[in-house]
Design a protein around this nucleic acid. Structure first.
Lengths: 341, 341
DNA sequence: CTGTCATTTTGGATCGTTCCAGCCGCGCCT
DNA sequence: AGGCGCGGCTGGAACGATCCAAAATGACAG
């Protein structure tokens, strides 16, 4: 069997075979009223027999709108984004959209060309799962052409759906303070340097302030896309030398890498070091990871984000940018304890 | 600022503004030779100024081919698939394709409607990351319309790119046998019940046979899409009651869940139970998981899969289905040891 | 000044749909 | 018998690009 390209059947093929006009076939596939049951079944039979599938490109071209949702994600290898991508795909499909993902891997280049590509596909809307690196260029590519929703990251243009990062950070930091920690560091992950990160820092700072403690901020240093294990060990070792007893990481992925370094360096968690994450990815709940963390309601975030985008696309929602904030919850697990005397 | 839909500029807008015909603009954006440098720069300036982006739908409609690759994936929440999805997205983008993902979550319905949708989008090719549940219907939807490549799972129609599952299973099982295990079970994950699984079972059986040992096969029982923790604990407890001392799981995700159950049940790994996985996802390498496993060359799998699909799409590769098998490697970590006497 | 040829530019057909205005035929009312 | 209304169906004009054959332009030789 040679793989013959086998031209797809068109609406005209169906029309000819059924002995009706293309308009009638169009009416049948779109399920409009005003087609006699007789004709309807006849056309449907031909459609099934020919395996006819309407060409979405032609349809969208004439309708001047698509059902494609662009999704920009920083790192699909990060479980949080993978899980969010899954939820978004499901929500989008549920509302009749198809999601087109652009994994940027923190590279500016990939992000911009991905966005341009999405615009070329006339994506009905764009969902940012991680903050655009070059926000100005990103804005100029998308703005005015498609509505944008920023999920889990803040964008100055477009709607925003995020967890209450500030409150979550407060919960996390307060938890550490209450356990008796005084040297509590904040860890930021540069790849996902969203302004979720910003709000989390704010919450962290406020609590530290209130408790009269000195804040310490650390940034992972890594090449985009790659994790350099040894370098990280050095970084962490250096940080521990500052006698920090607890760390609040801006996300679970970072927290888990931190645990990893700690294990390798022989630092006991939670005895020598307490660690709190943010996200509550599936992995964090594993007995072996057992990470105390702040849970983001992933499914709800995805649901509301797609809902808002859908409303914008259909012109139902109009006017000022929405800003939805969802409640978070501290999940106590085994990576935190009172500091050793 | 009201969110005005702001019609996209068309090629005619550019042509009018630049004082040339649409054909000339078309020639400029396609970079064909035979446009005077003078005109070219003038047109380019207008393009930049108007922020014009060609409409891919119109282009693909007239060209009768798209640059969309459909990717069917069983469970994006499974880190192996998430990682593969990432690699595939990157490879596709590198060759000028856009990947469209369909997460089926093991649901037949989602899979078939996803495939139909991909065909409506006239996807140039389809990449299966997990075996279609209803292979006959899947085949009838895709076959003859777009080339298919099965990655990491076997399909009877289309090309196949996979790791050497059989050899990998042999390596894993032999490793356990050599450690002195006699009661070695095989664990199959129903969601990703690909025929990768089949080949892995084959390898397992062969080694067990050769060693004169009785094989035992277990299947996780779970609803598609959800993991029912307690039920799993029961299942695992029951299995351990059969005095199995080692388990070879058809994939890392299953192996990690197994570790999880063992931890909860107070079963010590590797002292009371040895566990080997398959895939070598990033997580498996974490010190706290430390899973002995068979490494699949993910990036190479993705690269070759997209390469073959590209060749099929362009008609460069013709004729019989390819079947590429990549070498695997046993990664020794801490989840395996000789059985306690 | 004209003919030839190479280089640029152009108009129109085309892709497969949707959608709208209009047409056809039939039954009913007057 | 003629007019009207209506359900069912149809043809043609979009949509925004590509691509080809043909036209325009310009250079240059005779």
């Amino acid at each position: 069997m040679t793989a013959s390209p086998a031209r797809h059947a068109t609406i005209l093929d169906v029309a000819a075979a059924a002995g009706v006009s293309k308009s009638t076939v169009s009416n049948v596939i779109r399920g409009v009223v005003g087609v006699s049951p007789d004709t309807r079944t006849r056309v449907q039979e031909v459609i099934d027999q020919l395996g006819y599938r309407p060409n979405v490109l032609a349809r969208q071209l004439v309708q001047q709108r698509t059902t494609t949702l662009g999704v920009v994600v920083g790192d699909m290898g990060n479980p949080f984004y993978a899980e969010m991508a899954k939820h978004i795909e499901r929500e989008a499909a549920g509302r009749g959209y198809r999601a087109m993902f652009c994994n940027t891997q923190g590279e500016n280049e990939a992000e911009l060309s991905g966005l341009e590509s999405l615009m070329e596909y006339r994506a009905a809307g764009v969902l940012f799962l991680s903050q655009p690196a070059d926000r100005e260029r990103a804005r100029s590519i998308v703005s005015g052409r498609a509505p944008a929703v920023f999920v889990t990251c803040a964008g100055d243009w477009g709607d925003t759906v995020s967890a209450d990062d500030d409150a979550g950070a407060e919960l996390a930091t307060e938890h550490l303070v209450r356990l008796g920690h005084r040297r509590i560091a904040y860890f930021a992950d540069p790849i996902v340097e969203d302004s979720a990160d910003h709000d989390r820092q704010t919450g962290y700072h406020r609590v530290m302030d209130r408790a009269g403690l000195a804040p310490t901020i650390f940034h992972w240093q890594r090449q985009p896309g790659e994790l350099l294990r040894q370098k990280r060990d050095e970084q962490v070792a250096e940080i521990l030398r500052t006698r920090v007893t607890a760390v609040f990481s801006s996300n679970d992925y970072g927290a888990i890498e931190l645990l990893e370094c700690a294990d390798r360096l022989g630092v006991k968690v939670p005895d020598d070091l307490s660690v709190v994450g943010f996200d509550d990815v599936v992995m964090a709940g594993l007995a072996r990871i057992n990470l105390t963390t702040v849970r983001q309601p992933q499914a709800e975030l995805a649901g509301i984000a797609v809902e808002i985008l859908d409303a914008r696309v259909n012109g139902v929602l109009d006017g000022a940018h929405q800003r939805r904030t969802l409640d978070v919850e501290l999940v106590l697990r085994g990576s935190t304890a009172s500091p050793q005397p």
